[in-house]
Measured scan of single mutants.
Amino acid sequence: IQLFSRPDFLGDHFSFEDDQAALPASFRPQSCRVHGGSWILFDETNFEGDQHILSEGEFPTLTAMGCLASTVLGSLQK
């Protein structure tokens, strides 16, 4: 999965292949690309809070990911 700090796959980005119990504190994903398989994104660290399940594809905004525009993602799980 690739996470981007701005909508439309712009800004800083991080790529992950494994579960992340905590995303970098200063990084707030605003768009993402899922390459193969599914990922669960969580509103809180340690895989807690609301879950957003994404299958392979491109998600140019938080709302395209099924999140509110104000959502701050905290962790993710493959």
Rank of each mutant, 00 (worst) to 15 (best):
F42Y: 12
E17S: 14
S15Y: 13
D12M: 10
G36M: 09
A64V: 04
Q20M: 09
F14E: 08
S70F: 07
E56Q: 11
Q77D: 00
W39M: 01
S70N: 14
D50R: 14
I1V: 05
L3N: 00
W39R: 03
Q51L: 07
D19Q: 02
A69M: 11
D18A: 11
S26I: 07
E48I: 08
L23S: 04
A64R: 08
S75A: 03
Q77C: 12
I53F: 13
V72H: 14
D18V: 10
D50P: 12
S55N: 14
P7D: 09
C32D: 02
R28T: 14
P29A: 12
C67E: 01
F27C: 06
Q20L: 08
E44Y: 09
G36Q: 11
F4T: 01
D12Y: 11
E58S: 12
A22W: 09
S15D: 11
A21C: 11
G66R: 06
D18Y: 09
S26R: 12
S26V: 08
A25H: 13
A69H: 14
E56P: 12
S15G: 06
P24D: 04
F47G: 03
G11P: 01
H13R: 12
G57R: 04
P7W: 01
N46D: 11
Q2E: 14
T63C: 11
W39L: 02
F14A: 07
L3H: 00
A22S: 13
G11M: 00
G37D: 05
P24N: 03
G74Q: 13
S55P: 10
T45M: 14
Q2I: 10
F16L: 04
S70R: 09
A25W: 09
P29G: 04
P29M: 06
N46E: 08
D19N: 10
D43E: 15
E56R: 10
T71I: 05
E48K: 14
C32Y: 05
L23I: 07
H13L: 08
A69Q: 15
D12I: 11
L23F: 13
D8E: 12
F47V: 02
L54D: 00
Q20E: 10
G66E: 07
L23R: 01
P60V: 01
F4R: 03
L68P: 15
S55G: 13
H35D: 06
E44N: 13
G11H: 04
R33T: 06
D43G: 13
S55L: 09
L68N: 15
D8V: 02
T71L: 02
L76E: 03
P60T: 00
F9T: 01
C67K: 04
L73H: 06
G57D: 06
T71V: 09
C32K: 00
P29S: 03
F27I: 06
V72Q: 15
L10Q: 14
H35G: 08
A25S: 13
D18P: 00
G36H: 10
L41E: 00
Q30W: 05
S26F: 13
I40L: 07
A69D: 15
G36T: 08
S5Y: 05
S15F: 12
F16C: 07
V72T: 15
G66A: 05
E58R: 07
L23A: 04
A21I: 11
D18K: 10
D12G: 06
S70Q: 11
P60A: 04
S55A: 12
V34T: 08
N46F: 07
P60R: 06
Q30G: 04
A69K: 12
G36D: 06
W39N: 05
A25G: 12
E58G: 06
Q2P: 01
L68E: 15
L76C: 12
D50H: 15
F9N: 02
F4I: 03
S31F: 06
A69E: 15
W39D: 02
L10R: 13
C67A: 08
Q51T: 11
P24V: 03
S70V: 07
L23W: 07
S55F: 09
V72M: 12
H13S: 15
F16Q: 04
N46W: 03
Q77N: 06
H13W: 13
S5P: 06
I1H: 01
E17L: 09
L41P: 00
Q20W: 03
H35S: 12
S55H: 13
S26C: 11
T71P: 09
I40P: 02
S15Q: 13
T63P: 11
H35P: 05
Q51W: 11
R33S: 04
S55Y: 09
Q77P: 01
D43S: 15
G11K: 07
S15H: 10
F4V: 03
G11N: 03
T71G: 11
D19H: 06
L76R: 01
R33E: 04
E17I: 15
R28I: 14
F59P: 01
L76K: 04
W39S: 00
G37T: 06
E17T: 13
R6L: 14
A21D: 09
D19M: 02
S38F: 08
L54M: 07
T63D: 13
F14Q: 09
Q77Y: 01
D8F: 13
Q20C: 15
F14L: 15
D18C: 10
A69P: 14
S75F: 08
K78Q: 07
H52P: 05
W39Q: 00
A64C: 02
Q20N: 05
L10C: 13
C67Q: 02
Q77E: 04
Q30N: 06
L68H: 15
Q51R: 13
P60F: 00
I40Q: 01
I40T: 08
I1K: 04
S26N: 15
F14Y: 15
T45C: 12
H35Y: 13
V72P: 12
F59S: 06
K78Y: 06
T63Q: 14
F47P: 00
T45I: 14
S5T: 09
L62A: 06
G11C: 05
I40G: 03
Q2C: 11
R33N: 02
E58F: 04
A64W: 01
F16K: 00
L3W: 00
C67W: 11
F14N: 07
F4W: 09
D19L: 03
K78M: 09
K78H: 08
S38Q: 15
R33L: 10
F59E: 01
Q30R: 10
L3T: 00
D50F: 08
N46Y: 08
F59K: 06
L73W: 14
S31C: 07
D8R: 09
G49Y: 00
L76S: 05
S5A: 10
D18M: 09
A25L: 11
T61A: 04
G66T: 04
H13A: 12
Q20Y: 06
H52A: 03
H52I: 15
P7G: 04
L23D: 00
G11Q: 00
N46V: 00
I53Y: 11
S5R: 01
G11S: 02
E44I: 02
V72G: 13
Q77M: 10
A21S: 12
G57W: 00
T63H: 14
G66Q: 05
L10F: 09
C32P: 02
L73C: 10
H35A: 11
Q51G: 13
L41H: 01
L54I: 14
D8I: 04
A21K: 11
F16H: 01
G66W: 01
F59M: 00
K78G: 05
A69W: 07
F42E: 03
F4S: 06
N46C: 07
Q51K: 13
E56H: 09
L54R: 05
C67T: 01
G74C: 13
F59T: 00
R33H: 03
V34F: 02
S70Y: 07
L23C: 08
W39C: 04
F14G: 04
H13T: 15
D43C: 09
E56S: 10
P24S: 04
A64D: 13
H13C: 15
D8T: 03
P60Y: 00
T63R: 12
S26L: 11
C32T: 04
L23Y: 01
E56L: 05
Q2V: 12
F4G: 02
G66C: 06
A22Q: 14
A22H: 12
L23H: 02
I40F: 03
I40A: 08
L73S: 07
L23G: 02
L41Y: 04
T61L: 02
P24M: 07
T61I: 04
P29R: 02
A21F: 08
